[in-house]
C-alpha cells in the first residue's frame, strides 16, 4: 500500500492534521513524523510568551500516526478496500517526559498490541530528532465503516 494512500484517507486537515509523512508501516507497527510549525495557533496561548506544545496535542499526534494511520493500513489490508472508515479514540494513557518547542520535528512509532473486533490498541512512543523519548503511552481506538448517508 502506498503511504500517500494512508495520508489521503485521513479525516483531518490543517490546523488539526499532525502527520507529515509515514516512514514505514507493516501489519504490526508504524513510524511517522511531524514538524510543529511555529505558526500553529495554540502557541499564542500555551503558554503566554513561552510557547510549548500542549500535551494533548502530543497525544493527538501520537494517536493520528500511531492508531489512525496504522488503523487505515490494517483496515484496507484486510479486505475493506475502497470503503471509508471512521476512527474514534477510546482510551489513552500517556506520560510526558520532555517538552516540544515550536519548529521541532518528532518521530512517532507505534506497536500494535491487538487489532480485534475493530478495536486497535497500540503502545506508542514519540521521540525528538536526537532520539530522546518525548512521551509514551497506550492508545486505543475503534474503527467504523462509514454509513451511507440517509
Amino acid at each position: 500500500m502506498d503511504n500517500n494512500f494512508i495520508l489521503s484517507q485521513l479525516p483531518y486537515s490543517s490546523p488539526f492534521l499532525f502527520v507529515d509523512k509515514i516512514l514505514e508501516v507493516n501489519e504490526n507497527s508504524i513510524v511517522g513524523e511531524f514538524t510543529f510549525s511555529p505558526d500553529l495557533d495554540f502557541y499564542k496561548g500555551h503558554f503566554k510568551n513561552n510557547p510549548v506544545t500542549p500535551g494533548v496535542i502530543l497525544t493527538e499526534c501520537m494517536a493520528q500516526i500511531g492508531v489512525v494511520c496504522l488503523g487505515i493500513y490494517l483496515f484496507n489490508n484486510n479486505g475493506n478496500n475502497g470503503e471509508k472508515q471512521k476512527v474514534s479514540l477510546t482510551s489513552s494513557e500517556v506520560e510526558y517526559l520532555k517538552p516540544v518547542y515550536p519548529g521541532e520535528k518528532v518521530i512517532v512509532s507505534s506497536e500494535k498490541q491487538y487489532f480485534r473486533f475493530n478495536k486497535l490498541k497500540c503502545r506508542v512512543k514519540m521521540k525528538d530528532t536526537e532520539d530522546n523519548l518525548v512521551c509514551q503511552g497506550v492508545i486505543a481506538g475503534m474503527m467504523f465503516q462509514e454509513e451511507a448517508k440517509k
Binding site: 477510546t90 482510551s91 491487538y114 480485534r116 473486533f117 475493530n118 478495536k119 486505543a140 475503534m142
Partner: peptide
C-alpha cells in the same frame, strides 16, 4: 460497559 471495553472483556 461501552463497546470498546466490551472488546477487552472478550479478550
Amino acid at each position: 460497559i461501552n463497546s470498546a471495553n466490551l472488546v477487552d472483556v472478550v479478550l
